[in-house]
Design a protein around this nucleic acid. Structure first.
Lengths: 240, 240
DNA sequence: CGGACTCTTGATTGCAGTCAACTAAAGTGG
DNA sequence: CCACTTTAGTTGACTGCAATCAAGAGTCCG
């Protein structure tokens, strides 16, 4: 299986073999982090962009009052910050939800790759746009969707994103996170996540057993969760 | 007063006069939209990036169930989408909260400006990072902060952002939006916003009368709202 | 076979939503 | 200039979703 980063970017532009070689080169030396470890701690000065190659990670913030909010999930192939730039310091942390392997990339190297190939540039911008769209859709979930809708919506989103890197079957995928993680992403308590999951199972639209999520009726689940399958811009973008 | 776009970008890099001239040129022909009108409707194909020059605007999504969620506020000087790219279609709408004046910019023109000057490139990336950070902080608010904290946090954020374009006094600023708008941004009902505002006024940290917000004790308000003044990266970024 | 998570369930509490009525302010038009 | 309308803000009563607290069951793993 090719590198998930390359594999995902193919959805954003028609990459040539040369393009793919450049990208593959970027995603090179791997660092492994154990489950629940921090990839980058809050408040530190980042030295490189983080690309997730294996496992699931997240961006999160630990509040003074003890609560945790996960801002985004990162799947294999996901860049944890916008390409092209490094923040002066981390205003949030990057954490591993499962054991992960990451690559560290210099923004300069990515910008060079983008300059070298119009397709790479297009693909990277497309990826950035999709990441931003997913985060914004999370705002909508947190603000105006019920607990069950939030869960359903997330499951639809993950189905799409995992499919792009070949990690989803047509009827579901492995969901290697705990209910506490889901709660911290969706702004709920873990108890309420548990009850809402039961509610979803009761609809017959999906099953969740162990770490395996099976979606029996994606179309209906999307409707029930107010999910718009187009928002990740799977159709690409235009550099205009 | 100089153009707010230029004025804001000065915080992200040391722009030369030539840089500023280029940016000013981009922000040129103005289009006016009445309060509550749409700048760009959801589902349409955008033809240019939108830059807000005067007035307040927002990104929002209208749900099937009738609810509205505002995803971000845009102040004078704000670009409504990441520079450098156009989405194929709008998965959300851009609306005017007050009468606004906007400029339409071609992503190609912006990318050219970024290529022409390292400082412009740096400033634009810094701006993108700050916009993303603000959106992400909103996720934290929606997920894990109480109603009063959300309001207080927002007021602190706006103080900072407005100050960057010279639209805030040291002790407050004009807040030209309704309580319904605030509710739709913060994921609350307007009734609850009203009550939480009274609660905030009762603390003595701020007053809000008519369209004028006065912050009596910014430091305390920041602490009460779990606000981290550094998160907008006012210290700049590094292209590394 | 502990021990530590994770998940599940029950009981209770409370924050925030909904519904509804009313006030105040600001237009609008005859 | 004054009825009339519209919009924004305020208040009260009630409801309900989701948080919290607490305890028990299931699972994984050293």
């Amino acid at each position: 299986m090719p590198n998930p980063f390359v594999r995902k970017l193919r959805h954003g532009a028609d990459l040539t073999e040369a393009d793919e070689a450049i990208l593959l080169d970027l995603a090179q030396p791997l660092r492994r982090i154990e489950a629940r470890g921090d990839i980058v701690r809050e408040g530190t000065e980042p030295r490189a962009l983080v690309l997730v190659v294996e496992g699931w990670a997240c961006r999160y913030k630990q509040l003074e009052n003890g609560k945790r909010q996960i801002i985004s999930f990162f799947l294999p192939g996901d860049l944890c910050e916008p390409f092209g730039i490094l923040p002066r310091f981390m205003d949030h942390a990057l954490g591993a939800l499962t054991p992960v392997a990451v690559a560290h990339i210099q923004p300069g190297a990515i910008r060079n790759a983008a300059r070298a190939s119009r397709c790479i540039e297009e693909a990277l911008w497309w990826d950035l746009l999709a990441a931003v769209a997913a985060d914004q859709e999370r705002v909508v979930s947190l603000g105006r969707r019920s607990a069950a809708e939030r869960l359903g919506h997330l499951f639809c989103e993950l189905q799409l994103r995992l499919a792009m890197v070949g990690l989803a079957d047509p009827d579901g995928y492995d969901l290697p996170v705990t209910q506490v993680d889901l709660a911290d992403l969706l702004g709920l308590s873990s108890v309420h996540v548990n009850r809402s999951l039961q509610e979803l199972r009761a609809t017959g639209l999906l099953s969740l057993k162990g770490r395996r999520l099976t979606i029996h009726d994606l179309k209906s689940l999307q409707e029930a969760s107010l999910f718009d399958p187009g928002y990740l811009h799977t159709g690409g973008v235009s550099l205009a």
